[in-house]
Design a protein around this nucleic acid. Sequence first.
RNA 1: GCGGCCGUGGCGGAAUUGGUAGACGCGCCGGAUUCAAAAUCCGGUUUCCUGACGGAAGUGUGGGUUCGAUUCCCACCGGCCGCACCA
Length: 857
Amino acid sequence: MSRYVAAELEQKWQNAWAAAEIFKAVRDPDRPKYYVLEMFPYPSGRIHMGHVRNYTMGDVIARHRRATGHAVLHPMGWDAFGMPAENAAMDSGGHPKDWTYRNIDDMRAQMKPLGFSIDWSREFATCDPEYYGQQQALFLDFIEKGLVYRKNAVVNWDPVDMTVLANEQVIDGRGWRSGAEVERRELTQWFFRISDFSEELLDALATLDEWPAKVRLMQENWIGKSRGIEIPFARTDGGGAITCYSTRPDTMRGATFIALSPEHPVSRALAEDNESLAEFIAETRRMDTTEAAMEKAEKKGIETGLTVRHPIWPDRDLPVWVGNFVLMEYGTGAVFGCPAHDQRDLDFARKYGLDVQSAFYMPGKKVAIADTALVPPKNETVSYIDHFAGIGDCTSQQGIDATIDYFEAHDLGQGQVRFRLRDWGLSRQRYWGCPIPVVYCDTCGVVPEKKENLPIRLPYDDGNGKPIDFSIPGNPLDRHPNWRDTPCPSCGAPARRETDTMDTFVDSSWYYARFTAPHAETPTDLAEAGYWMNVDQYIGGVEHAILHLLYSRFFARAMHICGHLPQSAIEPFDALFTQGMVTHEIYMTRDETGRPVYHLPQDIHWTESGARLGSAQGRVVEVIPSAKMSKSKKNVVDPVNIIDAYGADTARWFVLSDSPPERDVEWTASGADAAFRHLARVHRLVAEIAASDAPGDAEADLLLLREMHKAVHEVSGGLESFGFNAAIAKLYAFANALAKSRAGSDAKRTAAATLVQLMAPMTPHLAEELWEMLGREGLVATAPWPVADPAMLVDDTVTLPIQINGKRRAEIVVPKDMDKADVEKLVLAHEAVIRSLDGAEPRKVIVVPGRIVNVVV
RNA sequence: GCGGCCGUGGCGGAAUUGGUAGACGCGCCGGAUUCAAAAUCCGGUUUCCUGACGGAAGUGUGGGUUCGAUUCCCACCGGCCGCACCA
């Protein structure tokens, strides 16, 4: 009998699938469509176990949906622009383009042996001119519709690498690569008007009921809607009013000072003839502005000498301070301080000896404020002092609402809704990105390129046949001898191209739409997009919960406005699933200086006393619990090695078993071994069944077929609800039942074929092999999914547990449709019940048909 | 600080709307097969008491609702994640 040799049969069936072209996505009016997409990879050059897990989940769904009669779109591409390619070029020469395409070839070659049912005819990379040219076309449409604009903005500037850095790339105030101190520089940059969509992006979250609540919440917080009010405070010196923004106007009575941002126009104006103030402002500007530093920085302020009038109690004048903690970017750059009900304000007030006044107290508990501000939850009732704005005993929320109404009615302030979400700055001073298709002309100004000139291609060399030198910091496009030169699209005079390229998040904000028509001459083909969109199931890591998904939601709306997507596709991802990581233990020893030294899993020798290095006599190795795989910790398992050792099906089976897909799964050698052993066992078992010839046995046959239908039911349910681990557990149990069954060969062959079908989404190669072995027609990949017969899911008799006072004490076997009263009689006659009752009458007997019986004594 | 998620055997984890807690796998123990080993197969494996039959406790801790709670409610403890000088 043939042994399970994964490498052979996997190649065989991949060839068969390719020949039959069964994974090509084809529009079919007679079938429901299903679009399953995994977040496309960055072509780093190696696939890792996280990729394997991600794409296996998508593939299981794609294969299952195909079997249930759907027209399936399951594409793959490459998120191919970005800094690593340029860094590689800087570090070791070569060209980002060559590096990227080489990596794509390598990764595709590593991915193909996994047998994913991908329509490779739709593959593209975002660095293909055919793709980024269409992205440029989109950009021109966005300009036309006012969805993108240019403005001055303060950015993080790395003076050594001569580029703008994203906030995440600034570590302790220094560029992550150069280590140079980052400067804040004002540059003219392009921005998407995503903030115009704040309200809609927030409201529409409620419709995404197949997204994880956690992701919706994170987006909600990111968009950050707050309702507040702008209140002008009249200056006692007769100058223009200072307008403060507040979300807690109900605490107005407690306002005892005003704090301005150092960048506030009034601060700047006052600094002109106030030396100490000027010095204070200069000092704060020198300060590190990274989040970490801001967190630690002491709250400091300086009194300006200016005072303003309290809008409700005009006899109370409030001193105006400049505080380093007030952000110019949020609200109006001015706040009123209410020490009694804001901890930060209280700390500030205590430090500088400012007045503390309560606006309210907890009902019945009038306690003086000491070092802790009184900040009850907004839905808790408080007692307002002075009943100003007509508020007395009510919740803070009611107080806020009533105060805003009052202020508006008396023309004292204007209610405001604010969002944390800022416009999306997309300009990057990099080479390896999508060129922004605009031209600067001395006479015409900023002129969009003509669509017929697209794509604006990245230059490969310096225009004189010499390679671009990537070892010089800065943007090669900016110093390129002739790429910038171009005639003005409007007047034809010599003009200059924009040399900034787009943030790579732009590339990934619409690729899902491009997959529906990857070769279209326009960004999308409305007929194709109308058919395939939305993505029915999107799968990826939770690290993209905010930026990528929010940008994509914005882009889908913007594309709809430009006529590239139907209205129905403005929320592009119907269902989202965020999968966990693949983790592994870390093996560590220490060198003479006590520094940790990490070791590869294959270098560890396991003994009864624990892990040792190399051999049983080797040094004792400290085993650190499972953590994310990382090269520096050497706890990486390379999928290529696993496929070589066990085959793709084992890798696929293992990454789905053991842990729920949303949680991390720990890679263990013993687990991978077990997965392989099981597949080999199924191979052996089915081969035996295929070759056997035993007469039927009515009872055993029925028993097995019942098991089969139960397996169909449970596995189908598992696959539909991301219960892959539970589905696999059921498949283990069903295989065990099949192996133990005394049923005849016919029943066993039927059960075996069903087992094979149920396994096919997870282990497609093995399934094809066994399908063929059982003499079934065609490919299991195209066979219709089995359907469970409801009648076969219920046994004729049920085992009812008997509880006495809620504790399980015995059980009885009864016919499945036995009358409640009869069940009760049987139960009361049971010896365990009689013993417990001890002659007394039961207080109550609860019979839940088919479930349980509970006797209350 | 704010918001959210999660605590179940030695380990990963399972458990429709509240209804037999520990499915399935790992590990471990015992056995079969073998000259022996590998591979394979069979049995056992929450804890405690008992020789056994059997009994008792048990899902982080403490309370509550219920005939019945891993599941629902409250408080606390522990871990993880997101946001955060947001006025």
